[in-house]
Design a protein around this nucleic acid. Structure first.
Length: 575
RNA sequence: GCGCUCGUAGCUCAGUGGAUAGAGUGUCUCACUCCGAAUGAGAAGGCCGCGAGUUCGAUCCUCGCCGGGCGCACCA
């Protein structure tokens, strides 16, 4: 397909301008208002070099470019050269391309032969999966899909929080107040109650904290009794998590969590010593990062047990040695910005230059409204909304709406899951990931406007038109060369332009680790399609016109499904 | 206190060193004998937190201030 930006850059290019083709291409803009053209080239910057008013420069370029074939017209408005692409030509090109590539449209091979690791979700074992966990899980999954789409070999790692002092606490609590039967009945709930009780009791009996630390030391030393309990907790928790992952349609290539690295740490502690980085402070071993304004990174506690940073160092080196990654992406909350800065600095001081390929992709906080107050979620204090409840409620609400609408020929059980869960995922991926938000049932259960169901509805609607055409004896897949002259209306053309931009949108979203760029574009496409649908009748009598419009509908449906797929959302044909 | 981060319409949020700052939602209207109304159209709603600076041009970049959030060694 023609790269229009490149074409325009070539048209504008002139040695006298003193700019390279690439520089010109980088300056090309898409005007805010379509009445000002499809692409624009601003000439302000040229004024100084050419010693000429920018309006005059723009006029010269416009005059020079005016007769190029791909453009309907080229005109200058003040200092801008505005390019209007020949609509029919453009629509024909885009539709051919989308319908030729099908579900490969939007994908590329620009990452071919390189490995990328995405670490995401990473819940803490023995704690329930709550609405806060949706962020890493869903954003991480979308980033995996985006990197996969642009051709990278992607390894998905669920870095389970399955180690640390918290397990000392859990074991102590279980021994004191737990029972096997209770645990078997509802594992997560029981474990959570032990954990909560531990913290309550520890307020009055601080010696419990010491006992927990001692127990973790035993666990780390591989004492059989502690190890057996820990393994049991881990197994039961993982079974629960998998239920949620199944609902979300998410899988991982590795569940190597923190515990996996427990026996790999001594090597790095020794290495830090050998490199003279480790110093003792109040009985603990630390790396002094004060010269970099990053405080101190604690490597071992005064009782000798390990910490988060220690395990992350071991994990990073292990991954580099095992996978030789091009990039290792950590989808972890912005609360841990300091941790990641410290950790990267330690790796750098150790001489691991590849630490620059380790990328922390932070996201904002989910909090809960507690009457007038807005508070952070707290598992300990029982102030949580469980993700599974949110998903189930969204599915139930969807089923209710579907029954109200008396949808014909639809498997409500199946589709309400696709739509309800899709709504939750879409909502999560709508905003820039760095933004904090307050969880709201109203918002997550709203299916009007810029929502997942809206986009899915648009897809189902396009599918419905194609079904109608098939029923009338048209083989939509066999429509060959179309006459794009029928697609020069504003609404058809705007839609075609949005379809055209999908590959660059996918590349941008991957490069910025920002799935919401795709989500936003998807909404734009759906809005544009619905406008086209309202403005124009598709199944008209004129064969040529009908075929051209059906080809555009088919291309739109393909793109909607492809982009939903990139976000991990289903694209039902009926709903 | 220091560091990071956010501040755009009543609310939730897009946006870009450039042309008149955009959606959704809410409010008020309109459109289903017509391909799916989970839709579309219209109205109303803005010192883009404040103040300087850089620039031909700043909502965007820099600095300062104000406000919210998060973080700042034996949790992760």
């Amino acid at each position: 397909m023609v790269n229009f930006k490149k074409l325009i850059a070539e048209t504008v290019y002139d040695e006298a301008l003193g700019l390279s083709l690439e520089e010109i291409e980088g300056m090309i803009e898409i005007p805010a208002d379509e009445s000002m053209g499809d692409y624009a080239f601003p000439c302000f910057r040229l004024a100084k070099a050419l010693r000429k008013a920018p309006q005059l420069i723009a006029a010269d370029i416009a005059a020079r470019a005016g007769d190029a074939e791909a453009f309907e017209k080229v005109e200058n408005v003040n200092a801008y050269v505005n390019f209007f692409i020949d609509r029919a030509y453009f629509a024909g090109e885009v539709i051919d391309e989308v319908n030729r590539l099908g579900n490969a449209y939007g994908r590329s091979n620009s990452g071919e032969g390189r490995k990328v690791i995405v670490e995401y979700s990473s819940p803490n074992i023995a704690k329930p999966f709550h609405i806060g966990h949706i962020r890493s899980t869903v954003i991480g999954n979308a980033i995996y899909k985006l990197y996969d789409a642009v051709g990278f070999d992607v390894i998905r790692i669920n870095h389970l929080g399955d180690y640390g002092t918290q397990f000392g606490k859990m074991i102590v609590a279980y021994r004191k107040w737990g029972s096997e039967e209770e645990l078997a009945k509802d594992p997560i709930k029981s474990l959570l109650s032990y954990y909560t009780r531990f913290h309550k009791e520890a307020e009055e009996h601080p010696e419990l904290e010491d006992e927990a630390r001692e127990t973790f030391v035993k666990l780390e030393a591989g004492e059989p009794e502690e190890l057996a309990l820990w393994e049991k907790f881990r197994k039961l928790s993982l079974e629960e998590f998998n239920r949620v992952y199944d609902m979300l349609g998410i899988t991982f290539d590795s569940y190597a969590g923190e515990s996996f690295y427990s026996d790999k740490m001594p090597r790095f502690i020794q290495e830090l010593k050998d490199k003279g980085l480790l110093i003792e402070s109040q009985g603990a071993q630390i790396v002094d990062l004060e010269p970099y304004d990053l405080g101190a990174a604690m490597i071992t506690k005064s009782d000798g047990s390990s910490l988060y940073v220690t395990r992350d160092i071991a994990a990073a080196v292990y991954r580099k040695e095992t996978y030789d990654f091009y990039k290792c992406i950590y989808v972890v909350a912005s609360q841990q910005n300091l941790h990641f800065k410290q950790w990267k600095k330690v790796l750098e001081l150790m001489g691991y230059e590849w630490q620059k390929d380790c990328i922390h992709v932070p996201f904002g906080l989910v909090s809960l409204s507690d009457g007038d107050d807005i508070k952070m979620m707290s598992t300990r204090e029982g102030r949580v909304v469980f993700l599974e409840d949110v998903l189930n409620t969204a599915v139930a609400k969807t089923a209710e709406i579907m029954r109200e609408k008396d949808a014909q020929g639809v498997d409500i059980d199946e589709v309400s899951k696709e739509v309800g869960i899709g709504a939750v995922i879409f909502q999560e991926l709508s905003n820039n990931r760095i933004k904090d938000y307050v969880f709201s049932w109203d918002k997550v259960l709203n299916f009007d406007g810029e929502t997942g169901p809206y986009v899915q509805y648009t897809h189902a609607r396009a599918s419905s038109v194609l079904r109608k055409a098939e029923a009338a004896g048209i083989d939509v897949d066999a429509i060959g060369k179309i006459d794009p002259a029928h697609l020069s209306s504003d609404s058809a053309y705007t839609l075609a332009k949005l379809l055209y931009r999908v590959p660059e949108v996918v590349e941008e979203a991957a490069a910025k680790y920002e799935p919401s760029i795709v989500t936003r574009h998807l909404v734009d496409i759906a809005q544009s399609f619905n406008k086209f649908y309202h403005d124009e009748h598709i199944l008209v009598d004129d064969e040529d016109e009908k075929n051209a419009k059906l080809a555009l509908v088919k291309a739109s449906r393909t793109v909607l499904a492809n982009c939903l797929g990139l976000l991990g959302i289903a694209a039902p044909e009926r709903m």
